[in-house]
Nucleic acid binder design. Structure first.
Lengths: 230, 230
DNA sequence: CCAAAAGTGTTTATAATACACCCATGG
DNA sequence: CCATGGGTGTATTATAAACACTTTTGG
């Protein structure tokens, strides 16, 4: 394979697709945006949102375009997960999939647009069967999300602008799929100095009422500490 | 992009290449196997080892095939790094690159085969200019290697079967590009219980002589602790 | 008044870090 | 006899983990 020759002509070309594992968080529950395929192959089954990489765009750009079409949002957190390349992973045509994961503020996205595309938010705890190798993509994406959330405070990408520490903890419990100690989580999170307490309180989720917090602008990422041990 | 139609015919296909960031370790130095391109585009410049994904193979298989051709080795540690997909990253032809990093036991590989392919081991500390986006690939690969080495003891993939703790520490210093405390490194590494001390000693690297160690078969990976804080 | 979450504090265990010190030996 | 790495021990600090307890308030 080292001597490749002057031109690439003798090699094959393949379709290059994008598949997006789209995470959202609502009702104390981590959710995935899936859609009901309206076309062959695998028509009628559930799959990740996807599309193909156009001639003039990078895969990152393609992923952003696809997400914008679905959610109406521009500023989405996006990270490459992995390429899935088994020769027989799709139908007869060979398709390489570049998988991304995205974090969506469900409170901001265009719900009507999502509906009209036959898409649906599924709880991560009870996913339907997925086509092809999409389940594997979800697993890898969750792994990546855990690594990210373990090293920096996610939340600005998934929660509303202001939130209580209960909501933040529930988000982390959903991501890591285990319970976290109230006091220790609180101490850890506040020690990062990336949250600002607001004067307003939330009284709907507890009798006593809890202060709202928000992320301090620009203060993020300076931490890079271990929030949750993987 | 959601309504894709029944067939994929209207979308474009691209070449799918593999680029391998091949790490080796010798003379207390982390090295990269690069080669001198003998063909256009970018003939005569240095680049990563690469090739194209064949019709009947996955990208993992393709990467293994390429590495086997270059080094003669079968059992190489391999990990996907990332896809590089800028539309203009290669020449006129659009080529998507799937980048892998590999860890090579330099003491085991076929040196003659490497030479004959115009390849050369370069110190990571003084790399030549690389073609296209290959420098970026190297940087990402090193990041991945640091994450891996930070969570489990690499070394079986890079060092000879038996090695001293000095050699292991030097390897870690090369990977993380910083000095590590002798005593603390020793304590940490031995606490993982994956190394076995041999009776033999190395007397070439110190006056007193240091015990050789080897990895205990199968004992790996049970640790998954933090060896070096990233 | 009680259940449920908010919020604070304390204790213990574990891990990271810095560094001192003796050992062995070839030159 | 000394420079160099081998190897061990210890003190200090930081972080993680477990958990007790007090506060607040709607039902």
């Amino acid at each position: 394979m080292i001597i490749m020759g002057e031109k690439y002509n003798k090699f094959s070309k393949y379709f290059v697709a994008i598949d997006c594992v789209i995470f959202g968080y609502v009702d104390d529950d981590l959710k995935l945006l899936l859609y009901h395929r309206g076309f062959e192959p695998a028509k009628g089954q559930w799959s990740l949102m996807g599309g193909f990489v156009g001639e003039e765009e990078s895969s990152d750009t393609a992923a952003r375009r696809i997400l914008k079409n679905i959610t109406g949002l521009d500023d989405i957190y996006l990270e490459q997960v992995q390429a899935f390349t088994n020769p027989d992973r799709d139908s007869e045509d060979r398709v390489i999939s570049l998988t991304y994961f995205a974090l969506i503020r469900i409170d901001k996205h265009k719900a009507d647009k999502v509906k009209e595309n036959g898409a649906h938010w599924w709880s991560l705890k009870a996913l339907p069967n997925l086509v092809f190798d999409h389940k594997e993509m979800v697993d890898k994406a969750l792994e990546k999300l855990q690594i990210k959330a373990g090293l920096e405070l996610v939340g600005s990408e998934l929660l509303p602008d202001q939130f209580t520490l209960l909501q933040l903890r529930k988000l982390y419990e959903a991501i890591f799929q285990k319970e976290l100690d109230t006091g220790n989580f609180r101490k850890k999170v506040l020690s990062l100095k990336v949250l600002q307490r607001l004067d307003e309180r939330n009284t709907t989720e507890s009798r006593r009422g809890a202060y709202y917090f928000k992320f301090i602008d620009g203060a993020k990422d300076k931490s890079f500490e271990r929030i949750v041990k993987i």
